[in-house]
Design a protein around this nucleic acid. Structure first.
Length: 208
DNA sequence: ACATTAATTGTGT
DNA sequence: ACACAATTAATGT
């Protein structure tokens, strides 16, 4: 495990800290589609993402979902960080988008290492910074972009995550994540296909 | 191989 | 948004 951690965090975190991570962290694999954190869960440990992608969703009071952002290799969940300060329940849901490998770090270590390692402090700080920016980006998308632009961005992001450019979702699933109806997605996808940006198939979309 | 059924996608109002 | 048509995949015989 230490090698995998080193590959990803070796540049940012010092060896001594990597060693400590290796001591206390537990390794975990999650298969695509499985929940990692549910809304209302208490958070006991902080995930570091080694590979794969996690989508982070918000849910409104009627139970409808909205995609906030994706986490990728080297990322951590900012929700956990806020929970570390004033401990509370998670306000988001995290679902494995692809098969995911991660290590879980006990929450109490976050603070301990903050005092001990300069590199850890800046890692936490950067994570916060990045996540806040992602949130603003998500808000901008929702508030200022039309659905067709949101869809295109969503598809581009997914295409990046699945390197082969094949997006294995039904229109209904996409509609859920973008918080709209299936018909709207179908129509917009058709438009994008006519523009030559993608190919539609049953149960998957091929990006070009 | 064919028929039946269910799920997904397309389209008009 | 709704209803329905068309298409495709899955399953059984």
């Amino acid at each position: 495990m230490i090698n995998e951690i080193k590959d990803i965090f070796g540049n940012t975190l010092e060896d001594e800290l990597l060693f400590e991570i290796n001591q206390v962290a537990t390794y975990k694999e999650v298969l695509a589609g499985n929940k990692i954190i549910e809304i209302g869960d208490y958070i006991r440990s902080m995930p570091l993402l080694l590979s794969g992608a996690i989508k982070v969703l918000r849910e409104d009071n009627e139970g409808d979902e909205l995609l906030l952002y994706f986490l990728e290799r080297g990322d951590t969940c900012a929700m956990t960080l806020t929970c570390c300060l004033g401990q509370s329940k998670s306000k988001v849901r995290a679902v494995a988008e692809t098969d995911v490998k991660l290590v879980m770090i006990p929450i109490r270590k976050i603070e301990e290492w903050s005092g001990k390692y300069r590199s850890w402090r800046s890692f936490i700080f950067d994570s916060y910074h990045n996540r806040l920016n992602e949130m603003l980006y998500a808000i901008d998308n929702i508030a200022f972009l039309k659905m067709d632009e949101r869809l295109l961005k969503y598809l581009e992001e997914k295409a990046r995550i699945f390197k082969d450019g094949i997006i294995k979702n039904t229109h209904q699933e996409i509609a859920y994540e973008l918080h709209t109806s299936r018909v709207v997605i179908s129509r917009l996808l058709k438009k994008l296909e006519n523009l030559g940006k993608l190919e539609l198939h049953r149960n998957y979309i091929l990006m070009k």
